[in-house]
């Protein structure tokens, strides 16, 4: 188990390095002089020169990459051009709302999607199955910001049950926090749940046609016992894989949802940084999300061993 973990982490290192090169070249190979751009329209050549030196823009590209990557390894992602604050500090400050939103979404998703997928597989080719799958395709097709505004209109503007926008920090009481993330988490969960429900159904169908299920039925076990104990446990691996893969979609969704609901998380930080052309922050945030995604996928791989004893690596 430990050697498997070590192997997975070792194989992630070159990927992280490649990601870092991608992100760095993306931001630095852009047409135009970033120093001139950042200094603004009224800057004197001397001011432009100061910015150029501060960002080491006068150095050759490979040197700048080594400096940036070396600092990133020591968790120093540079300073924001806009607010002059360290990028890691900016990310840390905004971690809580994004984290709470992601966890709430994940819990909602599993609670909605797994039962729906199981029921659809159990009642396959009936109107219940078709209804659930139609719902899945529908919620998969409606963009998250459309669902977001729809929910906001119904539950916040019309019914006034929940706040329209904003985020209440955990320090101000967990109930208020949950109320503030309820709508965005619901909007995100609907999209995410569609994906998970479909995979749960497909995976359950696969398992339900196997011999041990027939044996369990011949033994006279109840349908519920067969579905949950005998089938769902075996259908778990693909479902967890997709939850892992879906994290990329979830992160993208978080960026959009935070803008819709005005939540001061990392997603908003990203969008603001991009519109302000605050390159150190853009680089830092994308690197942060990518490394997070790689770590999540390692955790997903590790969880296979829990579900399937054959996976030992």
């Amino acid at each position: 188990m430990l050697t498997y973990l070590a192997g997975r982490i070792a194989s992630a290192v070159p990927i992280v390095l490649l990601v870092a090169i991608f992100i760095f070249s993306l931001v630095n190979l852009t047409p135009g002089d970033p120093a001139v751009l950042l200094a603004g329209d009224n800057a004197t050549p001397a001011q432009v020169e100061v910015i150029r030196e501060r960002l080491h823009l006068d150095q050759p590209l490979p040197t700048r990459f080594v400096v940036w990557a070396g600092n990133a390894l020591r968790l120093d992602l540079g300073e924001s051009i806009y607010s002059n604050q360290p990028v890691t500090k900016l990310i840390a400050q905004r971690l809580e709302p994004t984290f709470v939103l992601a966890i709430a979404t994940l819990i909602l998703t599993v609670v909605i999607a797994v039962p729906l997928g199981v029921i659809a597989a159990w009642k396959v080719n009936t109107w219940i199955d078709r209804g659930i799958m139609a719902f899945a395709v529908l919620s998969f097709s409606v963009p998250v910001f459309v669902i977001g505004y729809l929910l906001a209109y119904v539950f916040a503007v019309q019914l006034k049950w929940l706040p329209v926008q904003g985020y209440v920090p955990l320090a101000d009481g967990i109930l208020a926090t949950l109320r503030s993330v309820a709508l965005p988490a619901m909007a995100l969960a609907l999209v995410f749940a569609a994906l998970i429900a479909r995979v749960t159904r497909a995976s359950m169908l696969e398992v339900l046609s196997e011999n041990h299920i027939r044996t369990a039925r011949a033994k006279g076990l109840s349908t519920r016992r067969i579905l949950v104990i005998h089938a769902l446990k075996n259908a778990g691996v693909p479902v967890i894989t997709v939850i892992g893969i879906g994290f990329a979609t979830l992160i993208g969704g978080v960026v959009v949802t935070e803008s819709v609901f005005n939540i001061p998380g990392i997603g908003r930080l990203t969008v603001d940084a991009i519109t302000r052309r605050d390159y150190p922050v853009v680089q830092g945030v994308i690197l942060f999300f990518s490394v997070l995604l790689i770590l999540i996928n390692i955790a997903v791989d590790m969880s296979y061993a829990l579900f399937d004893p054959r996976v030992k690596g």
């Binding site: 960026v255 990203t270 969008v271 945030v285 999300f289 990518s290």
Partner: peptide, 11 residues
């Protein structure tokens, strides 16, 4: 694929 697609597109 380790970089979230929409972030890459936005950037």
């Amino acid at each position: 694929m380790a970089i979230p697609a929409i972030l890459l597109a936005i950037a």
